[in-house]
Design a protein around this nucleic acid. Sequence first.
DNA 1: GGATCTGTCTACCATCTGGTAGGGAGGAGT
DNA 2: ACTCCTCCCTACCAGATGGTAGACAGATCC
Lengths: 200, 200
Amino acid sequence: MVSDTPDRIVAAALSSFGTKGYEGTSLDAVAAMLEIRKQTILYWFPSKESLLEAVITQGATELASALQDALDAAGEGWARVDAVVRSVFRLSARRPELLGLVREAARLGPPAATQFTTAIAPLVRRASEFLQAEMDAGRMRRHDPGLLLLAIYSTVVGMVTEVEVLRAVGEEPTARSLVRRRADVLALLRSALLAAPDPR
Amino acid sequence: MVSDTPDRIVAAALSSFGTKGYEGTSLDAVAAMLEIRKQTILYWFPSKESLLEAVITQGATELASALQDALDAAGEGWARVDAVVRSVFRLSARRPELLGLVREAARLGPPAATQFTTAIAPLVRRASEFLQAEMDAGRMRRHDPGLLLLAIYSTVVGMVTEVEVLRAVGEEPTARSLVRRRADVLALLRSALLAAPDPR
DNA sequence: GGATCTGTCTACCATCTGGTAGGGAGGAGT
DNA sequence: ACTCCTCCCTACCAGATGGTAGACAGATCC
């Protein structure tokens, strides 16, 4: 029988890295969550950095699979954007640490950030091509697909992770508010992206 | 003669907190930047936390004044949005640490985040009222002003701070790219916000 | 039953962290 | 000349941090 300890360590570390940040999380703290000793963590992962690496791999995998599931179930055209946004909002309710980890990975810079972006690169490419195709077909306004993707990413991730900014603009981060925010983001993206109905 | 040391400490700490993060910055590191001893920092600021407080006050003041200057020089209507976006992009080129600090403050949560949002609350209120007025006048599409503000904030700050995500979507963060990004953000916001010309 | 391997532990360690205690140089006030 | 105040320093300290060394229990193999 193989031990499930490394998986449990990664899960606990993901949660803590995603909420308290990498520097803000000590190995002792992660160990305490699992009621094991720090040395057990260092038995499975030779250093804190290598644990981060495993956590990012895990996070990227989970994120990619969630988005993939949403896309598999989605239709065509705008429905795909809709599905992705909805799945991110669902994720933010069920696994807020995961979105937090995305932010943290971006903040830490290389090599963590590079690892993450490399892991989800295929999704980025597909999304980019999708946007390009929609634009070519005249169904979306023309923008640089890469920058558009970054804008969508920033907006959606900001809308679900920036709790304090949310409060600053007078919105309490409740479950009900999440539904409103999702509706608002979708409406906003609609008007930003969808080409105006051809007047001719 | 009063010493300028506290100001220099705050400036150095702002730069480090904004790039490496709060936990990622040690008092020794800040002291080394100024070629003084850590104890001199602790003479002026009784604790690291109180230094953070001073840094956030300073950061919020600088940010507010930059935005205020831009608004004072701006015209009416859409020109005001344009002016704000341009000033943030200018800031991201001249003082990237400042934008980094905004992100860091939001990430740290209370009390740092609260302090920051409190400090710029007047600007938020004015912006909110402006958007509301534009909507009432039929010049912008209707959205929740608070959520709209958060979306704009996320998009613009993301566009200037998320260097690694930028790379992931195939955009190298050069000075030239900054101009393109600014143009793209403005175009995006235009189509998202401006009401379609009344067809009647 | 002995040897080996796996997984977790206890016991340390060096380094770094924020923070305290207190000294001393030099200017200002008297 | 003396004292006081401002400002920065050296010398420490306790606790936390990431990491190492090695013991030990239990399973597995021979």
